[in-house]
Design a protein around this nucleic acid. Structure first.
Lengths: 120, 120
DNA sequence: CGGGATCCTAATTGATACTG
DNA sequence: CAGTATCAATTAGGATCCCG
């Protein structure tokens, strides 16, 4: 009880006295910590319904196996929706689910900041 | 010209026609994609000047080598500042640099959303 | 207390080739 | 086009020990 326990209302947005709430984050953080994952979400968010080839070419260099894995994971996590059209040639489109959009709206400021900071 | 090419001003914040700007992001994204990296930034942001032990205990399970590596990387990237006091016992404090605070302000909504989504 | 050094294993990524 | 399968290599993460 010797701590400075200001009420949550007083500490405001940037300081809670339970920092561990940021740490024990499981599945989604692990997913987002994989290569290209955050970028894929934002690219699909920016393009709208995006075909595999579009996504691939947005990243100059990514192996198809890696990108394919990432897309599968995001679909399975309920963040992307995959629609396959029975056409010749085959067409597949990915788009954000509503949860994916929620995520994207939080990722977007981050990626933009990173981009400006890196200069490219 | 058959595309619906609204002007960038009209498409607004969520859709640019250059999605590749999200993809070719280098160093910092690689750093943030490592385990606990984003969480560390937010924990330090939440705690303020944070000692190694505080950070460590916020994550129930993390090996000291991993956390130590992550802290070093964040310091080297200019996102955290490390201050070492020549006392006995030794004391070290980490805090966000101004760039780190910028980052934290963008990470915070993300982590909070993840936390609510996961339920814990 | 706050790590660094070392070693080792698990996990992730990429290259390549091939398919519906 | 939109991937999958397989394999190899890298890398990251964790355990352990120890030091200032």
């Amino acid at each position: 009880m010797e701590e400075n326990e200001a009420t949550p209302e007083e500490t405001g947005v940037s300081a809670e006295n339970d920092p561990s709430c940021y740490c024990r984050l499981g599945g989604v953080m692990d997913l987002l910590s994989r290569r290209y994952a955050m970028q894929v979400v934002c690219v699909v968010g920016a393009v709208g319904p995006a075909r595999y080839g579009e996504i691939e070419s947005a990243f100059g260099d990514v192996s198809s196996s890696t990108l394919s894995t990432r897309l599968d994971e995001l679909v399975e996590a309920g963040l992307l929706a995959r629609e396959q059209y029975a056409e010749i040639p085959p067409r597949v489109e990915y788009e954000l689910t509503s949860e994916g959009e929620e995520l994207c709206s939080r990722l977007d400021p981050l990626l933009r900041w990173v981009r400006e900071r890196e200069g490219s």
